[in-house]
C-alpha cells in the first residue's frame, strides 16, 4: 500500500516538466523516507537524480519499499490535468500494474482520478561517490537560465571557468565568441539574488549547452541553482526543492582539446 498526499501539487508538476525531456522512462523508488529517481538520458551523457522526502508530504504511507516504472511523458500528460492549486495524491497497491494520481481542488469541489499503466524498466543504478568539489557557484537560477539560453544562440558548448575573479561562461561559434563573467555579489537585498563563489582551486571545464539548457527547465523549482565542479568529474547542477529535497543533474564534461 502506497499513498502520498502532496498539498502543493504544483511542485510535482514542475518536477516532471524539469526532467521529462531528458529522460523518457524511469523507475520511481518509494521507501518510508521518501521517493527518489535516478536515470540517465538515452545517450548516457547526463544523469538526473531526484529526491522528495516524506516530511514534505501532508500524508505519506509506504508499507514496503517499491519501485514503479513510469513513462515520464505519459506521467506529465496526466499531471498537466491537475490544476496548479490542486492537491495531488499518488496511490499504488502492491503487485498492481497501475498507479493512480488523484487531484483535489483546494475547495474540494472537484476530485479527479487518473490511473496510469506502469512499465517494466531495466535501468542501471549508478553509485555517485561523495566528492570534494574544487568550486561551487550558487547563483540565481533565472540568471543561469538566461546565460545558457544566450550562449546557445552563439555556440554549442560552454566553458565554465571559476577563478578568484569570478565565474566565466564562454562560448564560440561560426559568428563569433561570447564571454559572460559573474563576480561574487553578496550585497543584495534578497539572499536568493546573491552570487556566491566557493573556490578551493581554479577550475575550467567544457560542457554541451544543449544539456545545460535542458537542466534549466527546473528553474521554476528554485530561485537559486548550485553548480559544483571538479576536473575529471561530471558537473552537478542542483535545484533544491524547498523543505523536500532536490533535483540534481550530472553532466559529463567534454574532453579538452
Amino acid at each position: 500500500m502506497l499513498e502520498l498526499r502532496l498539498v502543493q501539487g504544483s511542485l510535482l508538476k514542475k518536477v516532471l516538466e524539469s526532467i521529462k525531456d531528458l529522460v523518457n522512462d524511469a523507475n520511481f523508488d518509494f521507501s518510508s523516507s521518501g521517493f527518489s529517481l535516478q536515470s540517465m538520458d538515452s545517450s548516457h551523457v547526463a544523469l538526473v537524480a531526484l529526491l522528495l522526502k516524506s516530511e514534505g508530504f501532508e500524508h505519506y504511507r509506504c508499507d514496503r519499499n517499491t519501485s514503479m516504472g513510469m513513462n515520464l511523458g505519459n506521467m506529465s500528460k496526466m499531471l498537466k490535468c491537475a490544476g496548479n492549486d490542486d492537491i495531488i495524491t499518488i496511490k499504488g497497491d502492491d503487485g498492481s500494474d497501475t498507479v493512480t494520481f488523484m487531484f483535489e481542488s483546494p475547495t474540494q469541489d472537484k476530485i479527479a482520478d487518473f490511473e496510469m499503466k506502469l512499465m517494466d524498466i531495466d535501468s542501471e543504478h549508478l553509485g555517485i561517490p561523495e566528492a570534494e568539489y574544487h568550486a561551487i557557484v550558487k547563483m540565481p537560477s533565472a540568471e543561469f537560465a538566461r546565460i545558457c539560453k544566450d550562449l546557445a544562440s552563439i555556440g554549442d558548448t560552454v566553458v565554465i571557468s571559476v577563478t578568484k575573479e569570478g565565474v566565466k561562461f564562454s562560448t564560440r561559434g561560426d559568428i563569433g565568441t561570447a564571454n559572460i563573467v559573474l563576480r561574487q555579489n553578496t550585497t543584495v537585498d534578497k539572499p536568493e539574488d546573491a552570487t556566491v563563489i566557493e573556490m578551493n582551486e581554479p577550475v575550467s571545464m567544457t560542457f554541451a549547452l544543449r544539456y545545460m539548457n535542458s537542466f534549466t527547465k527546473a528553474t521554476p523549482l528554485s530561485n537559486t541553482v548550485t553548480i559544483s565542479m571538479s576536473p575529471d568529474l561530471p558537473v552537478v547542477v542542483e535545484y533544491k526543492i524547498a523543505e523536500m529535497g532536490y533535483v540534481r543533474f550530472y553532466l559529463a564534461p567534454k574532453m579538452e582539446e
Partner: peptide
C-alpha cells in the same frame, strides 16, 4: 570539436 564523454566513465554500476 571536443569529444563528449559519458557519465558511465565516471560513475559505476551499483
Amino acid at each position: 570539436v571536443n569529444p563528449q564523454r559519458q557519465i558511465t566513465a565516471f560513475f559505476s554500476k551499483t
